[in-house]
């Protein structure tokens, strides 16, 4: 093979002559050297493994989360729509059920009276909508992906009312930069930025896959938008509040990103 680097110093005869000795002499030291090196690495790894990392890093992580929120808000477009792959099957009965109460939350009319969805906060006309009221509002249906924070996705058709339509109906005021979605699933709630809430695919959903919601999917109504991760989409909805400031959320207060955009 022809040398490719003419500027490289040639290997001297003296150096070649010594090759045979090096390996034998190396024996012990090489082993010691490798043991020490791998020991150090192992110790470092064990110290770091499966931990949450140093507490002192927490403020840095919070700083990064705030910056990420700025980026995510800048990326949000009301024109970017979720369109599931044509080949993606509806999850149907495989769609996971999820709630934070001990058992499936069911609205008990005998103790709580008729279910109503309250719309309040910074609105000109606070509302109390029954399921029939919701069903009489302009209906919109989408086949949508659901993006779970855990990494799985599932496709379902969602039918309901655009939150933007409800905001118009209630006369939400310009100062309302945040919206909080509360539920009767214990103290579950999540608050959003107004831009995500007004996305055309953000719906107050009362039907999934063509049927009224069943209790494990959030009956009688839930919020759903593909621009937010699953945990931001409150099920078992009772109240939509337009607010001047953010109001945290069930998982947001427990360490998950507050913005949780998709």
């Amino acid at each position: 093979m022809a040398p490719r680097d003419t500027d490289h110093p040639p290997v001297t005869r003296a150096m070649r002559a010594t090759r045979g000795h090096a390996a034998e002499q190396a024996g012990i030291d090489r082993r010691r050297f490798l043991a020490a090196a791998s020991g150090t690495f192992g110790a470092l790894l064990l110290a770091a493994c499966n931990s949450e990392g140093p507490k002192s890093a927490q403020s840095l992580l919070e700083f990064a989360e705030a910056k990420n929120e700025t980026v995510e808000r800048a990326l949000l477009r009301h024109t970017s729509m979720d369109v599931p792959r044509a080949s993606a099957k509806i999850a149907g009965q495989h769609f996971p059920a999820y709630y934070v109460s001990d058992s499936v939350p069911i609205w008990d009319e005998s103790t709580r009276g008729l279910w109503r969805l309250k719309v309040d906060g910074m609105v000109k006309r606070p509302l109390e909508l029954s399921l029939a009221d919701l069903a009489s509002l302009p209906r919109i249906g989408y086949r949508l992906d659901h993006f779970c924070v855990e990494g799985w996705t599932a496709v379902a058709t969602r039918t309901g009312v655009r939150l933007a339509d409800i905001a118009k109906l209630a006369g939400a005021q310009p100062g309302a930069q945040y919206v909080d979605f509360a539920s009767f699933d214990d103290d579950y709630h999540e608050s959003w930025d107004i831009d995500s809430a007004m996305h055309p695919q953000t719906l107050v959903v009362y039907a999934q896959d063509g049927h009224y919601l069943n209790p494990s999917w959030g009956a009688p109504a839930r919020i759903y938008s593909p621009v937010k991760l699953g945990y931001k989409n409150t099920k078992y909805l009772t109240r939509i509040s337009f607010l001047p400031a953010r109001n945290g959320g069930y998982w947001s207060d427990r360490g998950y990103e507050w913005y949780g955009g998709v």
């Binding site: 931990s51 949450e52 992580l61 990064a64 924070v149």
Partner: peptide
Amino acid sequence: PANLTFGGWLAGARNWHFAMMW
């Protein structure tokens, strides 16, 4: 195996991942 992972739990790992990516 948990020993090959970092972050302790899902939210912790996500916060590290989305900070360190920058």
